[in-house]
């Protein structure tokens, strides 16, 4: 992902630099990659990538090499938008057995059915 992101930040690949900065002893996952896991969960649930309207993620903690990440969401609002529904979801990504890495919200559109 660092190559696709053109992200030269050494915390993603240089363990010595991670240690020097006091950030642990494992490479740190790109926040954008962890956000992508959340996006995946949202669009899988919504039915397609085209259903995503927005997603807003706050990066609360690091995901490090070797961590397992669990993503989740809970619907907080559903409202009609013309013939469609806009569904708001609180989303998160947690390091299994550890800290919250991402907290945020997303809005997806569900087509048809509103009247």
């Amino acid at each position: 992902m660092a190559l696709l992101l053109r992200d030269p930040n050494p915390i993603h690949y240089d363990i010595d630099e991670v240690r020097r900065l006091g950030m642990g002893d494992r490479a740190i996952n790109q926040g954008g990659a962890t956000m992508a896991y959340v996006m995946d969960a949202v669009v899988s649930w919504a039915g397609s990538r085209a259903h995503l309207r927005s997603i807003d993620c706050s990066f609360r903690g690091s995901v490090m090499a070797g961590d397992d990440v669990e993503v989740g969401g809970i619907v907080t609002d559903v409202r009609a938008d013309g013939p469609d529904f806009l569904v708001t979801v609180d989303v998160w990504a947690d390091v299994v057995g550890g800290r919250r890495a991402i907290a945020g919200t997303s809005t997806v559109v569900w087509h048809g059915g509103a009247s």
């Binding site: 992902m1 190559l3 696709l4 992101l5 053109r6 992200d7 954008g32 990659a33 956000m35 992508a36 896991y37 996006m39 995946d40 669009v43 899988s44 397609s48 990538r49 085209a50 995503l52 997603i55």
Partner: peptide, 26 residues
């Protein structure tokens, strides 16, 4: 490559992963 790295299912009809918004922004 992005979908492999993210272990995501391939998109339909040439649509790419929404993470590309983040990639494009950088």
């Amino acid at each position: 490559i992005g979908e492999e790295a993210l272990r995501a299912e391939p998109g339909a009809h040439g649509g790419v992963h929404p993470a590309w918004f983040v990639i494009a922004s950088l």
